[in-house]
Amino acid sequence: MKILVCISKAPDTTAKIAFTDGNTKFDENGVQFIVNPYDEWYALVRGLELKEANGGTVTVLNVGGAENDPIIRKALAIGADDAVRIDAAATDALSVAKQISNYAKDKGFDLIFLGKETIDYNGSQVGGMVAELMNLPYVSLATKIDVSGDVATVERDIEGGVEVVEVTGALVLSAAKGMAEARIPNMRGIMAARTKPLAVEAGTDVTAVTSIKNFELPPAKSACKLVAADNVEELVSLLHNEAKAI
């Protein structure tokens, strides 16, 4: 089984969110970058589990510059066999999706895994776009996948429930919580990652169709109104009369 896992780089979940250049650029000063959690914890680990059960290979792919190599090495340390970095700016979702599909289209991957969304731009877009560009079925926000022969049985989140689908042949999937348990790389993995292949390929020429004009921070929250613990009725009255929330 040939598995491709697309990984992106994201600011650490505790990073301070600030902007520079007149609120047009994310301030990377002092920010630590990680593998986007959905890509690492769920997509990559489930890919590795399927490979361990059925044989095959897991390749990780990132679209971006050389500054992304540390997060790619992290994915190799967790257990991916090899890595590819498409050396192109990740300008918007559609251009990233085009880079991924241009690379993947003639490689014969059985499964292409992505994360449910990136935790910085929260797009939830790239997976569906890759699927359409490659004319493959797409299962979004999948929480479970089992493979038997060339049939995959996948569960995905839907409003207030779960849908079970069966896909024959290759598919694209975006992984949400439930897919797998996060793995921590061990010393052997980290050592091995140093010598695993990380191929750098030139990107194709694509144009972005969306761009971020500027950012804005949410207005500061007004102070919390405290109610005494022995005066719970006051809270209910505030929620009813003032906030009109109950």
Partner: peptide, 21 residues
């Protein structure tokens, strides 16, 4: 959930920019 699985596909099909959320 439905929008997330269809809107990106359509964006790729029509070569259209998508703003999600």
């Amino acid at each position: 959930y439905s929008g997330k699985s269809v809107a990106p596909r359509l964006a790729a099909k029509l070569d259209a920019g998508l703003v999600s959320g």
